[in-house]
Design a binder for these strands. Sequence first.
DNA 1: TCTGGGGTCCTTTTGCCC
DNA 2: TCTGGGGCAAAAGGACCC
Length: 418
Amino acid sequence: MSRGSVPPVGPPTGPPGDDTGCTVLHVDMDAFYASVSLLTRPELRGLPVIVGGGGTRGVVLSATYEARVHGVHSAMPMMRARRMCPQAVVVAPDHDAYARASHGVMEVFRSITPLVEPISLDEAFLDVRGAARRLGTPQQIGEHIRATIEDEQGITCSVGVASTKFVAKLASARCKPDGLLVVPADDVVAFLHPLPVGALWGVGGKTEDVLRGLGLHTVGDIAHTPVATLERALGPAAGKHLSALSWGRDERSVVPHEPDKSIGAENTFGTDVDDPAVIARELLRLSERTAARLRASEQVGRTVSIKVRFADFTTITRAKTLGEPTDVGRVVYDTAMALYEALGLERARIRLVGVRVEGISDAADAPHQLLLGEKEHGWRDAEQAVDRAARRFGAGVVRPATLVDPSGTAGNPPRRAQ
DNA sequence: TCTGGGGTCCTTTTGCCC
DNA sequence: TCTGGGGCAAAAGGACCC
């Protein structure tokens, strides 16, 4: 834990190690997917375990710390991970279990404060400003959360406590696994400046290269570089942003739920595909899935976009904005198909296709000028009937005929109705 | 070493209207 | 009528995050 020897700028001054004004918590589960998977496989505790897709083209979703010491990390291609750590046990992901565990931890957060901003299944920001009277200092609240989650969910987490989101996030990363770190307001600059530039949120591999080209290696280096230089190298938005972050300035507040901006689905084929019929069938499946999710969330979208990734990994997108927003799978599919056909690809080898709907709004306040007898109306009714059947009998019981595979072998990946 | 799937945000280009 | 340019929205690409 870091300690602040100088009183903070704000109101009441506390003792050293002071969390006064540090009302933002970032809570991050340790090796979440792996930890949850171990709950049902306790015999694997203490062993290197990798969670990842079974296919030939998967990546590592998560790995236990025993596997990480061998260099395995998430997003690494499975093939490579297995080579690095052949003794590791590979387990398939169990998304239902992750969703349940996630729900459990989010409930713990919401019992502390309504100001919870989930970032993903396994991490969230909390603004605990209003919880002090009831639950104590931010640090005490953090320890309470850690104990509760370990107790109720059987997994550990790390908590960063700071005055801004971004410093809280770096703090939780710094004390991982199973730790808690307070960065007092007065210590922020000293905490940040020795860190490598890649630690900053928004600095990935490419930006790191650019910064290295400028001779900038640490956050302190960025802080002492004129904003104009950063803007020239990285663009105005990123330049200003990084400069602010390097001094610990981060105005973003904790916001409970941001509405979705887009909803989509994509699939990487087990092996590259050049058969237009297979592509079309996949676009249909992805369109149906996307539209079903729109309907389930009572939303509609105005723009349909497709993504095509070729065998050499180059990727293109094409988009079309509709006259009025939709949640109808058939409309999404027809648009996606038209976009695909307009590419004029002649048996190109394709690795991935995706469908996405953007410009999302609530179905309730969408302009809805369905005329009687309009073709779309029929599709919408049919799809809503399918939704009802799916709710009663399970997803996949009713599907377009072209997606029903009599042999159970075609399709990519094969999915059986039943 | 051969790269998932879900997203967000930013930048640049393009087409349109006035 | 031609041209320039501002303003805008859509499209396309790319970087990044978990």
